[in-house]
């Protein structure tokens, strides 16, 4: 009986096992990006920009040329690369601390300039690498190392909705928020990432996919409960959907 392959690891990822905590959906999102790069056959034309956070080692995992940016500056680094090599594909892979906190200026201006780069924005509502501190996307009431009594609006203000914010910028061509909390949504996330890279390919401008992701370790939940937590808590605060689609891509 010969067997047909239904699923195998993408060549878009290296063979290096990842350092991510058990059950962390960073790994899934890496896979989706790797698969899209492989399926579009652009691995050899792609330069990825790693940010600083849990995904700081992502240059060990994406199977293409990679460069390591300072914390928050990946969109600026990506701008430098893309402007010199307009015919290559350039993406950044950033967490919510990197993108929405220290790097908010860089991502806003990259979008405003319509940089033809793709930003993979992993939103897990917390700083993972440094041990669970509040991020700009931490939910009201969510306990973290720096909001031990739960994020309090009167003290730490309110979460930043990045997709909604960036979609007001005319330079943004494609912005979608997806989630990695179940297989069906993971498949939708992959389609969004594909659309983002297609937007880059057509030179329509800035593209970003925000993926709601888990942090079992710092949320204090097991991997499966963490997926549930996205569904029950994050999605209400961060509604999924396409927030910008300049070309009306299907």
């Amino acid at each position: 009986m010969s067997m047909k392959t239904v699923f195998k690891k993408t060549t878009g990822l290296t063979d290096n096992p990842t350092h991510y905590c058990p059950g962390c959906t960073h790994g899934i999102i890496h896979r989706l990006v790797g698969e899209v790069l492989e399926e579009m056959d652009i691995l050899e034309e792609t330069i990825g920009v790693a940010s600083v956070g849990c995904s700081v080692l992502s240059y060990e995992y994406f199977n293409c040329d990679m460069t390591q940016a300072a914390h928050g500056r990946a969109p600026a680094v990506a701008t430098g690369v893309k402007r010199v090599l307009p015919d290559r594909f350039v993406f950044t892979y950033q967490g919510d601390g990197d993108l929405a906190s220290i790097g908010i200026s860089e991502v806003i201006h990259a979008a405003a300039r319509g940089e033809k780069i793709t930003v993979i924005f992993v939103n897990n509502a917390i700083y993972g690498m440094t041990g669970g501190q509040m991020a700009p996307t931490t939910l009201i009431g969510q306990k973290t190392a720096t909001t031990p009594f739960g994020r309090d609006e009167s003290i730490q203000g309110l979460p930043i909705k990045v997709c909604e914010m960036l979609s007001t910028l005319d330079g943004a061509a494609y912005i979608e928020r997806v989630s990695a909390h179940d297989v069906q949504h993971i498949q939708k996330a992959k389609r969004a990432i594909r659309r983002a890279f297609e937007t880059q390919k057509k030179g329509l401008g800035f593209s970003m996919v925000e993926i709601l992701s888990t942090c079992p370790t710092n949320w204090g939940l097991d991997p499966y409960e963490s997926l549930e937590w996205i569904k029950d808590n994050m999605i209400p605060a961060y509604p999924l959907g396409v927030y910008k689609n300049k070309e009306g891509a299907e």
Binding site: I47, A69, R73, V77, V81, V84, E106
Partner: peptide
């Protein structure tokens, strides 16, 4: 900003 500028330089220099 100057911070963004030096990081763009980093990206371009990398090519």
């Amino acid at each position: 900003s100057e911070i963004a500028a030096i990081n763009m330089v980093y990206g371009a220099a990398g090519t």
